[in-house]
Design a protein around this nucleic acid. Structure first.
Lengths: 141, 141
DNA sequence: GTCTATGCAAAGCTTTTGCACCACT
DNA sequence: AGTGGTGCAAAAGCTTTGCATAGAC
């Protein structure tokens, strides 16, 4: 696994450039997001940074800030819950999520551009999409 | 527009075959789903059948029954809210949803099968997917 | 010093659950 | 008659908001 520090520093640089403040809870959250390269819920992130004693509300508000800054991507589960994950530059992918154990893996492949073209022809702009696959992994079967 | 009665009758037949009961609230809900061929929230359906004086809880429970019977499909919005829509046989498609006015249109196209193959190779079974596009429609721009 | 971020408490919203009663088959 | 559906009330679960205080720049 590559050194995680550069990724962390890059995220902090973005925050600074966008005039967001670098605080202890935020540093702890970024460290968690870098260390766990998979989608996490606000609750899970909160548990990971327990040592920092940050409030769950702070986690939500900081995740919102991260999303606005473009360093974190949010998406919804079948259940309605939201997960968050660090954005990797120029890298678009989706996930396959186990319905039972919630393990999530990246699918390094995207064929949605054709669909987005279709939507564009319908007059839509600023298009993006939410796509997640759900299934049962071997261990849960 | 085609006569909507056959679609309604077909749905009722499925319910009967699956031993679900045909009640006033359910008939009103089906009529709404047939009349409004677009994704609706439980709340919206509840408003549409106000004349029947059915409880919102009944709407949720019946939608769950409809989903189990396979006549209704549920999916999640960016916001975490759920929408419901009648299933059209042998027809798989996705939506483009306006972030502002929430109008939803069908995209009669699906290229996800390749992704599902990928997930299968990772050892997952019982795979399905959630895909929605979001954008701004011409009127909202 | 200013202005954003935080903590705590409380509210908000959609969805779910419990339980007694009703009604479809 | 028996099983499933319904209404009402209440809870649950995730997320958001208000406000006073603390802390980053």
């Amino acid at each position: 696994m590559a050194n995680q520090k550069p990724q962390m520093d890059a995220a902090i640089d973005v925050l600074r450039r966008e005039h967001y403040r670098i605080t202890e809870p935020r540093k702890a959250m970024l460290a968690t997001l870098v260390r766990e390269p998979k989608p996490l819920s606000a609750e899970e992130i909160h548990k990971h940074i327990a040592a920092t004693k940050a409030d769950l509300v702070t986690v939500y508000r900081s995740l919102e800030a991260f999303e606005k800054a473009g360093i974190v991507q949010k998406f919804n589960l079948e259940s309605g819950k939201s997960l968050y994950e660090l954005v990797e530059e120029n890298h678009h992918y989706h996930h396959i999520i186990c319905r039972k154990c919630h393990r999530a893996e990246k699918l390094d492949f995207c064929e949605i551009s054709k669909l987005e073209e279709l939507a564009k022809h319908l007059g839509y702009s600023d298009i993006n999409h939410v796509l997640e696959l759900y299934g049962l992994c071997e261990d849960c079967r």
